[in-house]
């Protein structure tokens, strides 16, 4: 099936079996191996990418469903050789050990800050109609879709707190 995917601003013409997930299209057909295949069932978040501004699990969606979407992967977060604020904060706060979950954590955290700025509530938000303040509890709840088997959570949360405060 002929499909056009727009990833990090570049259009890619692809001929894909409809079974190909967005994750496999990115990794195997386009060669962007930043998004990782962890569980392949939407449980770990290592495959998180940003589609039209929203973080999603690339493993649980078909590439052919995203023909009109703007996809951003971890490769698209930096501006040239300048890391994004979130990427730099992960480095500064040791937000990783093996690094396998990091691309998903970075995409997830980047989109999460936008959700919070837009006033989206979370499970731990006290008042559904109040303002959103990114406390540690809010950050951990909002990042619960990204697992880190090295358990670098304290560094990840510190990095996100730093960027959220800027």
């Amino acid at each position: 099936m002929q499909t056009t995917l727009t990833v990090n601003g570049t259009r890619h013409q692809l001929d894909l079996d409809p079974r190909v997930t967005l994750l496999d299209a990115l990794r195997e057909h386009i060669g962007l191996t930043g998004a990782k295949k962890g569980c392949d069932h939407g449980q770990c978040g290592a495959c998180t990418v940003i589609a039209d501004g929203r973080r999603i699990n690339a493993c649980l969606t078909l590439a052919v469903m995203h023909a009109d979407a703007e996809i951003v992967t971890v490769e698209g977060l930096a501006e040239g050789k300048t890391l994004s604020a979130m990427q730099q904060a992960f480095l500064d706060h040791d937000g990783m050990q093996c690094g396998y979950c990091t691309p998903g954590q970075l995409c997830s955290a980047t989109a999460m800050l936008e959700e919070a700025r837009a006033g989206r509530a979370s499970h731990v938000t006290e008042d559904l109609e109040g303002t959103t303040r990114l406390t540690r509890d809010e950050i951990t709840e909002r990042m619960s879709g990204n697992l880190c088997r090295c358990a670098c959570y304290s560094g990840i949360v510190a990095a996100i707190e730093k960027v959220a405060a800027e």
Binding site: G42, G45, T48, R54, R55, I56, N57, L60, T61, S108, M112, E115, A121, S122, H123, T125, L128, R142, S144, G145
Partner: peptide, 15 residues
Amino acid sequence: SRALLAGASPQLRNR
């Protein structure tokens, strides 16, 4: 709203 926010993860709820 509360029930939805208690379910799945943000990535899954976005789809």
